[in-house]
Design a protein around this nucleic acid. Sequence first.
DNA 1: TTATATACCTCGCTATCCGATGTGTCAAGA
DNA 2: TCTTGACACATCGGATAGCGAGGTATATAA
Lengths: 110, 110
Amino acid sequence: MKVDKELTKGSHELIILKLLSRQDMYGYQLIQQMSLLSDDVFCMSQGSLYPFLHALEDKGYIQSYPQLENGRERRFYHLTQSGHKALEDKERQWDLYTRAMARILGGIAK
Amino acid sequence: MKVDKELTKGSHELIILKLLSRQDMYGYQLIQQMSLLSDDVFCMSQGSLYPFLHALEDKGYIQSYPQLENGRERRFYHLTQSGHKALEDKERQWDLYTRAMARILGGIAK
DNA sequence: TTATATACCTCGCTATCCGATGTGTCAAGA
DNA sequence: TCTTGACACATCGGATAGCGAGGTATATAA
């Protein structure tokens, strides 16, 4: 394992909201895209993803709808208005987080 | 709360090892330094820190020793050789992590 | 027809982290 | 002098996220 899961745990919401902000996707596709785009740094298991998506839907950040594609039923997820807001907030937090870490790792420079 | 704890959870080990790589510190001081340097992004509670330090010592990354300072007994922690190796590894992982996230947040650029 | 990839799902375990709580010391001020 | 608050260390129980294991079902390739 290249990167300890412990480190990347908390960023799942940000990643998923971001991917869905570009286009509607279904669960399995999200896992593939995460792995592909991150060069396998983010490998979410199905046992994590699906309950996670349901929770995001409960929070109103995403909305799901079934769609037939290649003769196969898939459950697509769409980012809601509220989800877009949450994404913005998460991106701002990510920025604060990495800058704080840069200050600690980089040295005294503040 | 500026930054969701969920996001910053996994980075405690990196931060503590890094701070101890500069100088030996005691627990209470570590908490203060984390808050100060990170502008309150990293606020570790005592209930998290002390068990965490004990675990790091069990892993052999740090070594503790008591020291009297200002007439007050404090338990200082020192980064071991093995701890330095772990720190290097964690820093490399942090780099991979942020670059992977940058690819996802930034867009298609790979 | 058998295996593999796709696609969704649930359940129970584990690890982590935090708040609450407890102990004791020291300095400042009422 | 007594009390308050900061300092310093510690443990414990609860909450929660994420994972592995396991289950179901369909399409495609061998």
